[in-house]
Design a binder for these strands. Structure first.
Lengths: 297, 297
DNA sequence: CTCGCGCCATGCCCGAGAGGCATGACGTGC
DNA sequence: GCACGTCATGCCTCTCGGGCATGGCGCGAG
């Protein structure tokens, strides 16, 4: 019996099914399904009844459940306690992230931390690759592309890319604009390595849409918005709204996933071999939970 | 953090060092050493001070120790509790073993089991290979050769092979006899597949000793002893003494290991994929502990 | 009635990790 | 100074956890 298996079993009970639990514990549904059976074989007890629909805990499972929860809680307390004894581990955590994310995501999260929590040493980063940030000394890195092993990562959020128009614009009354219409306008975009730009171009390629009628490059999100506010074009960025700009979702052709809107995926990553890895992953989970509650997943 | 790692760390503290702990938890010393470092990295805490001699727990480790022990105790209780709910798992456990082992080892162990323990359904087996016994439906198998993966096994005991002479024999006053002298006598041996026979012949080959002067084959250990009691030769078997026979250790040439005596190794094996695997390994551990306390390892 | 959708299980493959063996570095005691 | 006991490290194997793709299966909508 391993703690991981116990956590999986409890997650299945709480989530009411394997599929839902798999999402909660960040593994695929087949993997979780197999781990469950392994735990059952290991203990020699049938924990779940299979059959129609979501599987349901057996009587034995429910009887064990309190002890299993206690086991997890105790393990959690041990890991917390280690933070106290950690030498140079979680007193300071260096968080690296692109600028947009820092202002819109990390800063609000830092504001929610208590006195017991580690001090987050936030550092803006040019690279979009979490792997590079980790190599540069960051403990946690936020970016758009999952790093390769042995780094670990977790999905953080799926943020929409907005097309910002000023209040007087003909589109100002709409809530979304199709990609095909968007390219007919002059666009204010960020330079290439920025994710909103890359996501837009990838979507254009995938949809077979023509190149935008005109492109104006801005050095940062706020500047792009300022240009849009000045009527120089439609700013396509993922920043939150400024200057009273009106955000429009960018509608993609059907079947493109992400609810048909242009989005960018954020991930949070850390080094699996770093000291206090348990603490880092816990912090990453809290950050993900915070973002989910704030942006609604 | 996984329960296995916790168990390892506690074992190291209790045993006072990696090497001793490795034996206690049945893994090799290098493996245990690495797991420890992994646990430290995972928690972000230095648990042991390395340096001269056996490593010693740090202050942080000692602070965590009670919680770790509690964690293991709780996990143990959960596994015990599962035995109660196990369906057809550990109510009956089929134990297969060679005849000698059954009478001399398993039976006394069965006598020590309480009402809460599973019923051991003991079955004598001709094969010396635990793998065959498991394939034949046994839950636990006792034999002389460790099975291949995915079966799991544990060393059970190292039993001496005795040279039995009757009280009136010229050797009756001795406690041991060298292999070279033994072969000059007429010997009462078991047939080939029996382990005492195979061990003897392997030792003869290894020592370059001549073949025994004369061999009388007996169908079983007790019969061999009966023949020895009748003065028909020296019985070389691993059974406990009967018929007032005098046991002599068989001395091997130096460097042959096993404290220079002819011995056979016993192992207990089970199927890692069997239901109630946790209960089986616990039972195997208890059996090993019993044998150790009875035969002094 | 049938089709589609949401469940979970299974087959396949890959990579990480745990394990063993052999060996090396380091201290201690004879 | 040498033998021995400690733990660490390199190398290899093999299990197992994980993901993707796919297959049954029941239920509900059309």
């Amino acid at each position: 019996m391993e703690l991981r298996h116990v956590a999986y079993a409890v997650a299945v009970v709480d989530a009411g099914g394997v599929s839902a639990a798999a999402e909660a514990v960040h593994v695929s549904q087949p993997s979780l399904s197999r781990q469950l059976r392994q735990l059952e074989a290991d203990l020699g007890v049938t924990l779940f009844e299979r059959g129609s629909g979501p599987l349901r805990p057996t009587r034995a499972c429910l009887a064990l459940l309190p002890a299993l929860r206690e086991l997890l809680a105790l393990a959690g307390r041990v890991e917390e306690q280690t933070a106290v004894h950690a030498r140079g581990g979680l007193d300071r955590v260096v968080v690296a992230a692109p600028n947009v994310t820092l202002t819109d995501v990390v800063s609000p999260f830092v504001a929610t931390l208590g006195a017991d929590d580690p001090v987050l040493d936030v550092r803006p980063e040019d690279s979009r690759l979490p792997a590079d940030m980790l190599a540069a000394g960051a403990d946690l890195a936020i970016g758009t592309r999952p790093p390769a092993a042995p780094a670990r990562w977790r999905p953080l959020a799926t943020l929409p890319v907005w097309a910002y128009v000023r209040p007087g614009d003909p589109w100002a009354g709409r809530v979304q604009v199709p990609l095909s219409e968007l390219v007919e306008r002059r666009l204010v975009l960020l330079p290439r390595p920025f994710t909103s730009r890359e996501a837009l171009e990838a979507a254009l390629t995938a949809a077979g849409a023509p190149a935008p009628a005109g492109v104006l490059e801005a050095a940062s999100g706020p500047i792009a918005q300022a240009l849009a506010a000045a009527g120089r074009g439609v700013a396509v960025v993922s920043d939150d709204a400024r200057h009273d700009l009106v955000p429009l979702a960018v509608r993609l052709p059907a079947g493109a996933g992400d609810a048909g809107r242009l989005t960018i995926r954020l991930v949070v990553a850390w080094d699996s071999r770093a000291p206090a890895q348990a603490g880092l992953s816990a912090l990453a989970d809290r950050l993900a939970a915070f973002v989910t509650s704030r942006y609604g997943g």
